[in-house]
Design a protein around this nucleic acid. Structure first.
Length: 473
RNA sequence: CGGGGCGUAGCGCAGUCUGGUUAGCGCACGUGCUUUGGGAGCACGAGGUCCCCGGUUCAAAUCCGGGCGCCCCGACCA
C-alpha cells in the first residue's frame, strides 16, 4: 500500500529516488499526511506552523498592496460557473458538485468552489456602481476543492488552502499594472526573499493560461530534481467576467463601462516547493523566516546543571526575539532527538552538555551545512543571530547555483527537450511557432513562461522573447 | 476510463497456493532496570470485527460467489 514508514531508518537519498525522498521528508518531519478521503490532506502542526508563517508574510504584503481581506462562501450555485464560457470549460473536469442536502436532492446543485471568480463577481456587480468604488481590491484566505486524479501531499491535493485575490479597476492598464505589482511585490518578494527560492517570472502561453484570463503571469521555481513548480500566478482577466456578470460602473462622464479585473493566488503548494528546493538527505532545511523554531536548545545529558544552564540559554535567546524551543528531555537519547530536529529543518541547534557547562560554552550546530562550532556563552546570542542570517543567504545561494547549473540556453525545440531532462531550457520564443509547443508537450515538456531575454517581464507575446521550458509538477 | 496490485495490531508486513492447536514478525506503544556526547539495551506487558456479506466444510485469514475500499502506472491541473 505504498505509504511511507513513519519511523526511523535513514531517509532515501534525494538523488536515489526523489519522489520517495519527498514523501519520507513529509512524513518524518511530521508535516502532513493523507486524509481518509482520497486526495485530502491533514496538515500537521509543524507543517501548519510553516504555512502560518508564510501566510503572515504574504498577508502583510497583500495589505501593503492595498487589498483588504474578506470571505466568500464555499458553495457556489452551479449556474454561476456557466456564465463565463472558457472558465466553465476549464474547470468542468475538476468540479465537486453537491447534489443532496438535508437528506433530499437539491433543487439546484451547488458546486464546491474550485476558485471564486464567479461568486466574487456576483457581489462585485452588486457593490460597484461608480468610478469612485474603484479600484476594489479584495483578498480571501480559503480552501478550494478540485477533483484530482493523481495527488501528492502539498503539491496536488483535492482540497488545499490558499489565498485568492480579486480586484476590479476602471481601466485595463491599471488592472494590468496591479497584476504585475502582485507578482513582483508579493509573490516574487516572498518566494525569493522569504522562502529563498530563486524565481523566474514571465507570462504563460495561451495554452497554459488560466481559464478565463487574457494574460497569466507566473513565477516559477526549479525543484531539487530539475523540474519546475509554478509558485504563484497573477491573472489579468480583462473584462471577461465583468461582461459575464454585468459588473459595470459609471465613469466621470456618466458613461456605463465594464470593470477590468485581476485575480491571483498562491497555495499550500508553496510548502511543497520549500521542501523540494531546500531539503537534503537529512531532511528539511528551513529558511529562518519560515522556521516555527529558529533554534532548539538541547540538553546533552539531562541533569540538574545542564538543565539549568540550557534553560538560562533558552531564556536569553528568547529575549533577543528568537523563536526558541528548549529540549531538555532525558528520553529519547540525544542522537534520536538531534536527528528529529534536523529532519524538521530547525536552522540552528545549541547543544549543551556537562563539558560545555564546565567551560562556559555551547556547541552551535547549523542545519544548512550541519557544521558544529563551539561558542562561548557570552557571545552565543550574537552567533545564533548571525548563523540564521547566514542560513537564509546560503540556502538561496545554493538554490540559485543549482538552477544556474541546470539551465541551458538552446536554439531549437529538440535541444530544449534534451535539456529539460535535467532542468530548464531557454529558447527563442520564435521557435515555438509551427507546432513547437506541441512537440514539447509530446515530450512531457511545457513552456513555463515567456520573458525578455534579460529575464524581465514582457508586456505581450512576441518573437523577440525567450521561452523558459521544462518538465513540471 | 484502460492496465497492474493490495486489504491481517497504530504503521510496515509474513501466513493464503496445499483449510487444522492459543494468528505471527519488525517498528511504534506501556512498565521496570541499566543507559544517555549522533538513530540505546535487556526483561516484562498491552494491543486483532484477519475489509464486508453470503456459501462450502467437522473446521475458513486460507476455498467459492458477490460487494466495498485503497494503492501504483497512462490523458487534465494552484
Amino acid at each position: 500500500m505504498g505509504t511511507v514508514a513513519q519511523d526511523s531508518g535513514a531517509l532515501t537519498p534525494r538523488a536515489a529516488d526523489f519522489p520517495r525522498w519527498y514523501q519520507e521528508v513529509v512524513a518524518q518531519a511530521e508535516l502532513a499526511e493523507n486524509g481518509p478521503v482520497r486526495g485530502t490532506m491533514v496538515i500537521r502542526p509543524w507543517g501548519f506552523a510553516i504555512w502560518e508563517l508564510l501566510q503572515s508574510e504574504l498577508d502583510r504584503r497583500i495589505k501593503a498592496a492595498g487589498a483588504q481581506n474578506a470571505y466568500f462562501p464555499l458553495f457556489i450555485p452551479e449556474q454561476f460557473l456557466q456564465l463565463e464560457a472558457s472558465h466553465v470549460e476549464g474547470f468542468k473536469p475538476e468540479l465537486w458538485v453537491v447534489t443532496h442536502g438535508g437528506g433530499a436532492p437539491l433543487e439546484e446543485p451547488v458546486v464546491v468552489r474550485p476558485t471564486s471568480e464567479t461568486v466574487v463577481n456576483h457581489f462585485f456587480a452588486k457593490w460597484i456602481h461608480s468610478h469612485r468604488d474603484l479600484p476594489l481590491l479584495i483578498n480571501q484566505w480559503s480552501n478550494v476543492v478540485r477533483w484530482e486524479l493523481r495527488t501528492r501531499l502539498f503539491l496536488r491535493t483535492s482540497e488545499f488552502l490558499w489565498q485568492e485575490g480579486h480586484t476590479a479597476h476602471a481601466t485595463e492598464a491599471e488592472a494590468s499594472a496591479y497584476a504585475v505589482r502582485i507578482l513582483e511585490d508579493v509573490y516574487r518578494d516572498v518566494t525569493e526573499g522569504v522562502m529563498g527560492i530563486p524565481t523566474l517570472v514571465g507570462h504563460k502561453t495561451a495554452r497554459e493560461r488560466f481559464a478565463g484570463a487574457v494574460r497569466t503571469w507566473t513565477c516559477e521555481g526549479m525543484m531539487g530534481d530539475g523540474k519546475a513548480l509554478q509558485l504563484g500566478t497573477s491573472h489579468e482577466l480583462g473584462d471577461n467576467f465583468a461582461r459575464a456578470f454585468g459588473t459595470t460602473f459609471s465613469d466621470p462622464t456618466g458613461a456605463t463601462r465594464y470593470v477590468f479585473q485581476t485575480s491571483w493566488g498562491v497555495s499550500t503548494r508553496l510548502v511543497g516547493g520549500l521542501i523540494m528546493v531546500h531539503g537534503d538527505d537529512y531532511g528539511l532545511r528551513l529558511p529562518p523566516a519560515l522556521a516555527p523554531r529558529h533554534v532548539v536548545v538541547m540538553v546533552v545529558r539531562a541533569g540538574e546543571s545542564t538543565g539549568k544552564a540550557a534553560a538560562a540559554v533558552a531564556d536569553d535567546l528568547a529575549s533577543r526575539g528568537l523563536r526558541v524551543h528548549l529540549d531538555d528531555r532525558a528520553e529519547p537519547s540525544f542522537g534520536r532527538r538531534a536527528i528529529d530536529w534536523e529532519r524538521k529543518g530547525v536552522p540552528v541547534r545549541v547543544e549543551l552538555g556537562p563539558r560545555e557547562v564546565a567551560e562556559g560554552t555551547a556547541i552551535l550546530v547549523t542545519r544548512h551545512d550541519r557544521a558544529k562550532t563551539p561558542v562561548a556563552l557570552a557571545g552565543l546570542a550574537d552567533a545564533v543571530v548571525e548563523a540564521l542570517d547566514t542560513t537564509a543567504r546560503r540556502l538561496y545561494q545554493e538554490a540559485l547555483a543549482f538552477r544556474e547549473a541546470r539551465l541551458r540556453r538552446v536554439a531549437t525545440v529538440a535541444e530544449a527537450i534534451e535539456a529539460a531532462a535535467s532542468g530548464f531550457a531557454v529558447l527563442p520564443a520564435a521557435s515555438l511557432d509551427a507546432g513547437g509547443e506541441d512537440r514539447l508537450a509530446e515530450a512531457g515538456v511545457t513552456v513555463r513562461c515567456l520573458q525578455r531575454d534579460d529575464g524581465s517581464l514582457a508586456p505581450d507575446d512576441g518573437d523577440d522573447l525567450v521561452a523558459v521550458v521544462g518538465r513540471a509538477y
